[in-house]
Design a protein around this nucleic acid. Structure first.
Lengths: 126, 126
DNA sequence: TATTCTATATGCCTCTCACATATAGCGCGA
DNA sequence: TCGCGCTATATGTGAGAGGCATATAGAATA
């Protein structure tokens, strides 16, 4: 008997658009534009890669997951004023992960643009 | 007390990539490339808009939902050999729906390509 | 006759998603 | 000094989506 209902997606980087939080975070950590969750939240929103405003909870969950997988590493920063920050940095594995995402996203974006072009032609014609 | 957990997404056409089944179906009905579920299934897969092979159940569910919303209309076709087919055609509302999808998809595709470009530059540099 | 292809449809279980809440340090104005 | 708001991190929750499986059935083919 085979397992059922289990989310299995052979394509590891299959794009559920919300998952775009992940590549966005990896990228921002790579550029150094942001290093902790709260900043990443606003930066991700500013990028516009995700279609709607991102939920803070989603960002923190992504960060914890990425850390669990070894794609990012964190250290607590209690130096500044205000609550402690958990600063993240990209690992080598994280860079590789970002590279995989780039390939998939570029391919998918192209397919979407092709579709939009053809569909627009259809609409113009009719 | 406000409702919770309800899928509310102000952006009606927010892209959960799997939902790309919907615009793909609308487009294929618009072109006349396919008219019933079983054909749509293979055509949608051939298009490559969706990242993985589409589940038959998903296509039929999308069709029923679209019909419920008035975006497509169906008639049974028992003329040919084999089991009866439910033939669909696009309504005016369906065309409008497709137009909305096109706008959103084009915008999103562009954002994704921009991201891929910048991320690739980052990876090349590092 | 049984297997395969066409064709439509629903059941089920897990995971995702977006909202909500919990916790807490700090600055600032009343 | 009390509350308020901003910064900051994190988890809880309920509805819906996602993907596999099965049910049904006509027709062709081996």
């Amino acid at each position: 008997m085979r397992k059922r209902g289990r989310m299995q997606l052979d394509e590891q980087y299959a794009i559920r658009l919300s998952r775009l939080i992940e590549p966005a975070v990896l990228y921002l950590l790579g550029t150094g534009a942001a290093a902790h969750g709260y900043d990443l939240l606003s930066e991700v929103n500013a990028m516009g890669l995700t279609e709607t405003q991102v939920d803070p909870g989603a960002v923190y969950r992504v960060l914890r997951q990425l850390e669990g997988e070894g794609a990012v590493a964190s250290t607590w920063d209690t130096s500044g004023g205000g609550p402690a920050r958990r600063n993240y940095e990209l690992t080598e594995l994280g860079r590789a992960r970002l590279a995989s995402w780039v390939t998939v996203i570029a391919r998918r974006a192209e397919a979407m643009q092709e579709f939009a072009k053809h569909a627009q032609e259809l609409l113009d014609k009719g």
